[in-house]
Nucleic acid binder design. Structure first.
Lengths: 235, 235
DNA sequence: ATATTAATGTAACATTTGGTTAAAAGGCCT
DNA sequence: AGGCCTTTTAACCAAATGTTACATTAATAT
């Protein structure tokens, strides 16, 4: 799904590991860079979802890296949080002009994680794709309300679990399109999940039990043998 | 302690610096944003005392930003002054419906500062009344009086703490809409609060204890497992 | 047609996740 | 200090999810 990789640019190894540990504990993937030059290399190679940048770096000044990033259209849309021991107000202001948030040392790991989440949430909220996540999908008697996580059939609410809802919504958004199991695992479960493809079948089955008149003769989620599943195009 | 930080949203750098210079000369603190997206980022991260918004922006239209701001309860109480080169009467009207004042270019720095002061003064004067968001929310036996910060159940007043009230009110204003813990933390606690998501649960629990017949089988604030909480739509 | 094989459906079970709950610690105000 | 309110923490429990084994179905070859 979304790019959750975070780059930590920090020269002090213990702080670096502390941050990395805490981010990973919260479900993020984190890479590290010990210097400005290393950071710039990594940024060029890989697309990051967020960068945590220490201002006090050997070699290149952190502020210079900020400026580089934010002036380069290829990277200016990557969220940036500055981490720094400098607590002077002037620096903070300068930093905030360049970055999306500014955390001063010493910081609690929890606060850092919370700020990372806040910044990512803020970015996610602006994404046009996210906008499309809201709204209603109607197929015949079936209505899928993305905001309320609710499915109704002829007005009667149907209780789906979260996973079931996501899977159904994913298929229903692409009527007629046949989607392979592997693809569903990637899209609905997220890239980093190593799940048995058969698990998809089980979920499909459970959804069918709930939304279909006769689960053995599905009208909404159909099977394309040898390929995958698709949501009916009729309606 | 009032927040006197001002955000200047303006793409032309010379005008931006002119405004910033003049505001700072008059004892204000000013941040700048060069585009609509940058403005939205900054607004989410920091709480501003006033926003100066140019309508002619690259990317998002200024009017759109107005609408976003004024429709979001988290930002609708931030004073907003529109600065624009457009002098057409129609624009002026559209602007004033959304903003608190409207300044057309070219303007004298003195005039701008005066208007900023005026709007801030005006808001300061309105504060007590503004603080009370009007309106009643009724759901079955439950009545939430936003003006009096009072909740009653079948006429019997229920004693909620401030936090509990805000949380309940936030959910009750959006019946049916499922809201994630992170969003609640942002909306009810405010962006700068770095709180454990679990804390939300505890508050929910206490509200339930007070307003629900049987807290373990809630009728008002319901749980959507894996997602968040929502206020019931029935009633 | 019938047998063969692969794919899919189904059910039971195991595991993990996430929510509830209670209790304790931390703040703030008087 | 004492009394709220808030936040954190951890144990517990229920529901959601994932796995596996087995049954059934569909496609194909014989």
């Amino acid at each position: 799904m979304n790019n959750k990789k975070i780059l930590i640019v920090e020269d002090e190894s213990d702080i670096r590991e502390l941050i990395k540990y805490n981010l990973e504990k919260n479900g993020f993937q984190a890479d590290v860079a010990c210097s400005g030059t290393e950071a710039l290399q990594k940024i060029r190679i890989k697309k990051y979802g967020l960068i945590l940048l220490d201002l006090m770096l050997p070699g290149i000044d952190g502020i210079e890296i900020c400026k580089m990033l934010k002036s380069d259209p290829a990277f200016s849309d990557v969220p940036l949080i500055i981490v720094s021991a400098r607590s002077e107000e002037t620096d903070k202001l300068t930093g905030l002009e360049l970055a999306d948030d500014y955390v001063t040392k010493p910081f609690s790991p929890r606060e850092l994680v919370a700020r990372v989440k806040a910044v990512l949430r803020c970015y996610a909220a602006k994404k046009p794709e996210k906008h499309a996540e809201e709204g209603l999908i109607k197929k015949g008697p079936l209505v899928i309300d993305m905001g309320k996580y609710l499915v109704t059939r002829e007005g009667i609410p149907i209780d789906l679990s979260n996973m079931e809802f996501m899977l159904l919504a994913y298929l229903a958004k692409r009527p007629g399109k046949i989607i392979k199991r592997d693809f569903l695992l990637d899209a609905v479960w997220g890239g980093g999940a190593y799940i048995e493809p058969r698990t998809v079948d089980v979920h499909i089955r459970r959804i069918r039990e709930k939304i279909e008149e006769n689960p053995s003769d599905p009208k909404f989620i159909c099977t394309k043998r040898g390929v995958g599943y698709y949501f009916t195009e009729e309606g």
